[in-house]
């Protein structure tokens, strides 16, 4: 079985977001980067499937060279090789075309992604890639087992869970508790250095969107503190002042 895991290189979850160049560029100063947390679940499950079912795991990132440390980390966690499409990931469509192109060239049985990326938060790349390849896509997947050429999975639906069985190949957007995040061990880190990381150039895509500018949310006003003895007055305030009841 051949598994492709698509990972993003994103600011860590506690990062303070700011912009430069007249609010047109993300300010990378002082930001530490991580593998997208959802992508990390996908990767962890892929490595488990490699151990239980026998598989090769390739990680793929569409991004610039500053993502290489995260790709190496994925190799240290247990992926066999990596591909980086050397391009700034400008929008979901662009990224999806790149992933679909690589997938068509190499043919994977399973393409695992995160439920959504931490920066773009679109939750659309899996659907786009699935359609571009003409295969089903499901998200967010919380449980995944492979039985021969059939995937048995559970995904979250509004207010509950749905269990389904579908034939491979598939594209899946993953979330917890599909697997526990894995931490690379010393041996993994050593072997990761010699595993192949192939850098390829992007295929051309007509531009669909163009970033105008970024902005930050308006700062939150003061929090109105209500003494515990007068807790009931909260209900009056919510009714008369906030008008949300």
């Amino acid at each position: 079985m051949k598994i492709l895991v698509c990972i993003t290189n994103v600011p860590d979850t506690t990062a303070k977001i700011t912009f430069t160049d007249n609010n047109t560029k993300f300010n990378k100063a002082g930001i530490s980067y991580i593998i997208g947390p959802y992508d990390d679940y996908a990767l962890a499950r892929a490595v488990e499937l490699k151990e239980s079912n026998g598989a090769t795991v390739t990680v793929l990132n569409v991004g610039e060279a500053d993502g290489d440390p995260q790709i190496r980390k994925a190799l240290a966690i247990g992926a066999d090789d990596a591909i980086r499409v050397n391009a700034e990931p400008t929008d979901s469509y662009f990224v999806a075309v790149q992933i679909a192109h690589i997938a068509k060239e190499n043919g994977y049985d399973l393409i695992l992604m995160g439920r959504e990326s931490l920066d773009f938060n679109s939750g659309v790349v899996h659907g786009l890639v699935g359609e571009m390849l003409g295969i089903p896509s499901y998200s967010p997947v919380m449980k995944l087992d492979i039985d021969g050429t059939t995937a048995k999975l559970a995904r979250e639906i509004d207010g509950g869970k749905e269990y389904l069985e579908a034939p491979l190949p598939l594209v899946l957007g993953c979330q917890e508790p599909i697997a526990e995040w894995k931490i690379p061990n010393m041996r993994g880190i050593m072997t990761a250095r010699t595993k192949p990381l192939n850098v390829v150039e992007p295929v051309e895509v007509a531009s669909m969107t163009n970033l105008e500018s970024y902005s930050l949310p308006a700062p939150k006003g003061e929090c109105k503190m209500i003494p515990a003895e007068e807790a009931e007055s909260l209900i009056t305030l919510l009714r008369k002042e906030a008008r949300v009841l």
Partner: peptide, 15 residues
């Protein structure tokens, strides 16, 4: 909304 609600992006949709 981007960066899990920490920021916004204004984008021109060209297609």
């Amino acid at each position: 909304s981007i960066y899990t609600g920490k920021a916004f992006a204004t984008v021109e949709v060209q297609s």
